[in-house]
Design a protein around this nucleic acid. Structure first.
Lengths: 142, 142
DNA sequence: TCGATTTATATAACACGTTAAATATTAACG
DNA sequence: CGTTAATATTTAACGTGTTATATAAATCGA
């Protein structure tokens, strides 16, 4: 599968960086998502980072043990928790972010900006088309 | 990640079919690869189906237990085995293949033949470009 | 208010990806 | 030859994806 190989090629670039800091790719996605606001619910995080709830549950447990995130209670709904990133978490992100950005820059340089943009668009369209279209036989003109 | 979501959207179409026959996506890829010739080595299969050797080892064990594949010895190199598909394996493929092809046809119909071709080309180019290009960013300490 | 259904999250079981190490066989060198 | 290095495959450990189920709290209905 072409998607599989492409994803593998891309992640092969980033995994070593994250691995050096004992982070998995998914844990990284969760941490990144937590920087965009404060006080997420688990379900929101799962959607934002495209991680299934069972996995997210394990990830949050691991990150909490390392004090990279913390949970607070939400008074309105006791079965949800407000999850936020800690100072240590932000520090870790600050440490890794430059490497991550350099990886993206290398990919962009190697593949070309406009081709990358086209690829992004096609991928997004494919995903949208397959998820909410029950049987969408019509194709947008482009 | 766009690649992740796209792949997830695509596989969501095929997983139910395979699951109904107690096959995982990877087991399906291995079986399919085995139909192209007779007597593969494990390493060849791993490359063909883009599956890591540790995973392939487990998959072959499972498929062998279900008598979908069989192993023979290679006289030239005793540490390798000649792996081939059995009649049951071919029968299972014949059972699933129509559904699989229908899934592909639906995706092609929904997304458009032309866009799909472009996407394939871009994905392949990206993978090639990143694989034989420069090496990944190094993960050093700071 | 009580009970049933829905919603949010967690846990369990199994399979795969990754990394690392182990095992076994072949090849290479002294 | 025998010892060492290289190759092919397997196993182990850990984390994650998927599916199914469990738990808990909120909501709805009688």
């Amino acid at each position: 599968m072409a998607l599989l190989k492409a994803r593998e090629a891309v992640m092969g670039r980033f995994r070593p960086i994250l691995h050096a800091h004992d982070l998995t790719e998914q844990q990284w996605r969760v941490l990144r998502a937590l920087t965009s606001a404060d006080g997420f619910r688990a379900g929101e995080l799962a959607r934002l980072s495209s991680i299934s709830m069972p996995s997210l549950s394990r990830i949050l447990r691991a990150l909490e043990k390392r004090a990279l995130i913390e949970r607070g209670v939400e008074d309105k709904d006791l079965r949800a928790a407000q999850i936020s990133i800690t100072a240590s978490g932000r520090a870790l992100i600050a440490l890794i972010a430059p490497h991550s950005e350099r990886g993206y820059a290398e990919i962009t340089a190697a593949f070309g900006d406009e081709r990358l943009t086209t690829l992004y668009r096609l991928l997004d369209e494919l995903a949208t088309c397959l998820t909410d279209g029950t049987e969408p036989v019509e194709a947008d003109e482009e």
